[in-house]
Simulated scan of single mutants.
Amino acid sequence: MSMVTDHAVLAESAYWQILRPGHALTDGHVALRLNVGAAIDDPQVAADLLHTYRTTCAGLRAVLGCDGFGVSFAWSWVPAGDGIGEPRAEWGQPAIHVFGRTPNERVKPVRVMAQPVHARPAAMRPSERTRLDRRLAGAFAAHADGAPRPDSDPNPAGCDGCGPEVARDQELWRADGVRVIRPRAPLTEANVLVLPMRHVVSPASLRPAEVVSYAERLREVRAHFGDRFGATGLSCFLNDGARAGQETPHVHVHVFGRSADEPRNPFEVLARRIGVVRESRPGSYRLS
């Protein structure tokens, strides 16, 4: 099967584009790319990102039946080497990859990303992709002005992100409505979670000010990891909805410090932990 290498623009807003990546990994893989010259810490850009994300989710839900969404992005980091665990970097400007998840999906994104970039199969034949992209473009246009914000659960009872033990045992620092905490079971030393102080289940229900604060906290995390571990950038992901693997009903971004000379790729550690790959001999891994 030939690999499609050119991306397709499916929708555009004031500051963001919804694209089909040239190296799309699944049927429901699209990317939100920031326009040149825009900055994520601009409240208008942050508000437009939230609107674009809601449009993206609504379109994927309408066309593919997606009821969960995986989100992956790099921060001052370009996936190096085999790129295990991350989508291929295709653009110079920031991009957020969104994976629509369905009950009957043909392949799980994590299984594809557990393979080296050069070994990843194309998600679809070019003709199949073209037909699907036309349907998605129509769905995104239909939801461009009316994608609803999901209701956010007002009751934090039992939420692992809201309990007093988070502030007591895990919190590293907080500012402007967003906190940085240490995971209970970190994958690597350079691993934190970033989450809003407010009880919010889905990123689609975040406020623009919280997105701006997220950006500043990620800058702080990068500096912190750089000082302590020599990290030069960050890899980040979150799961939106049970279908995508969200277990805690509170938005939380998993953040890893990355560098070209890192001793371990955190996504290889994660893949072994969740059983996606198994180690066959020192330094090599096979899909389970």
Rank of each mutant, 00 (worst) to 15 (best):
S2W: 07
V4N: 15
V4E: 15
D6N: 08
H7I: 05
A8K: 14
L10P: 06
L10A: 09
A11N: 13
S13F: 02
A14P: 01
I18M: 00
L19C: 02
R20G: 00
H23Q: 13
A24T: 08
H29Q: 09
V30M: 01
A31P: 10
R33G: 06
L34D: 04
G37S: 05
G37N: 09
A38P: 01
D42W: 09
D48S: 05
T52K: 01
A58T: 10
A58M: 12
L60H: 00
L60V: 06
R61F: 03
R61M: 03
A62C: 08
A62F: 04
G65V: 06
G65M: 07
D67R: 13
D67I: 03
F69R: 00
G70S: 08
S72F: 12
S72K: 11
F73E: 05
W75V: 14
W75E: 15
W77R: 00
V78H: 08
D82S: 15
G83C: 03
Q93I: 10
Q93H: 10
A95E: 12
E105F: 01
E105V: 02
R111I: 05
V112C: 01
A114N: 04
P121A: 09
A123N: 05
P126E: 08
R129I: 09
L132D: 01
L132Q: 02
D133C: 02
R135H: 15
A137C: 01
F140P: 05
A141S: 11
A141M: 12
A142G: 10
A144F: 02
P148M: 03
R149C: 11
P150K: 01
D153H: 09
P154A: 15
N155F: 06
N155Y: 06
A157N: 13
G158N: 03
V166W: 01
D169V: 09
E171T: 15
E171I: 10
W173H: 02
W173M: 10
R174W: 06
A175V: 06
G177M: 04
R184G: 15
R184S: 13
L187Y: 12
L187M: 14
N191T: 14
P196N: 07
V200C: 11
V201K: 06
S202F: 04
A204I: 03
P208S: 04
P208K: 00
V211T: 06
Y214K: 02
E220D: 15
V221Y: 04
V221P: 06
H224V: 12
F225Q: 05
D227C: 13
G230L: 05
N239Q: 11
E247H: 15
H252R: 11
H252Q: 07
G257E: 03
S259Y: 06
S259V: 11
S259M: 04
L270E: 10
V277Y: 05
R278V: 09
E279F: 14
R281D: 03
Y285R: 08
R286A: 14
